[in-house]
Nucleic acid binder design. Sequence first.
DNA 1: ATACTTGCAAATGATTTGCCAGTGT
DNA 2: ACACTGGCAAATCATTTGCAAGTAT
Lengths: 143, 143
Amino acid sequence: MSALAAERVLRRRGLRVSTARRLVLEALHAADEPVSAEVIAGGLAGRFPRSDLASVYRNLETLERVGLVRHLHLGHGPGRYAPAEDAPPDYLVCEDCGTLVAVPAGTLDAARDAVRAATGFVASFAHVPLTGTCAGCAGCAGT
Amino acid sequence: MSALAAERVLRRRGLRVSTARRLVLEALHAADEPVSAEVIAGGLAGRFPRSDLASVYRNLETLERVGLVRHLHLGHGPGRYAPAEDAPPDYLVCEDCGTLVAVPAGTLDAARDAVRAATGFVASFAHVPLTGTCAGCAGCAGT
DNA sequence: ATACTTGCAAATGATTTGCCAGTGT
DNA sequence: ACACTGGCAAATCATTTGCAAGTAT
């Protein structure tokens, strides 16, 4: 989604397009994987002016509420945030090595169908990604 | 697993069978779904003597390390703990209503296979359960 | 008797909230 | 101008850690 479209979404809801919000969105788009509020506030390694952590949290929440951002819980550690996209990747997190594997949308459809058929439950991997053991760690038994 | 078997596991590791540990295990077995450390420390609604929260956390960690307890993250809120069993249920958490659905081990095997075939990733639903929308909430569109 | 354990308090990490000044519309 | 926002500090929630006293073996 373009920056302009994002601004339109905010305005449509009577929300303001502030510098801080623009920076949060830019930071999320500049990152190549979901990042923590702390990282965003810190200025993504200096590429952006740093802003207040509390404001970043408030803005992430606002942006998520209007559908511009999604946040996910990758096991332990702080929550991570990513821009909401049309076909966001599903994530798989390795519990051994922490590797985050993004798989294109659709890859897990079969799994979703199997779960739905068995339980009537519609699984979503958007908020809490699938965890397990990646191919690498499964192969060479960890310590 | 019987209380006696659990004690044997602890002794075999050179760990002590203390009152506090016995109480934590009893409380977990008395609960019918995973509970938080806070709830365990609080004495499971008065059915058990309350103990110190820090000790409960320490004991849960110890008991998990020796394989007597497992802990899972159910989206938001504190981590929850359950006794480790031979064939523990997989859990499905509804992100709308919070409902926790336990499905017998094996139910999600098809999903696991689909994920493995597509990505080489071995999914585990033990630590971070599958989240999504339960049949009820999927039906009557939420607010 | 000797280590492992506990309880209590204080520290930490993540996130939220109160409040007043700042700024977008 | 007015109400939404931002910054800063303090509060909260979950969990961890330090330490002296307690207890299982």
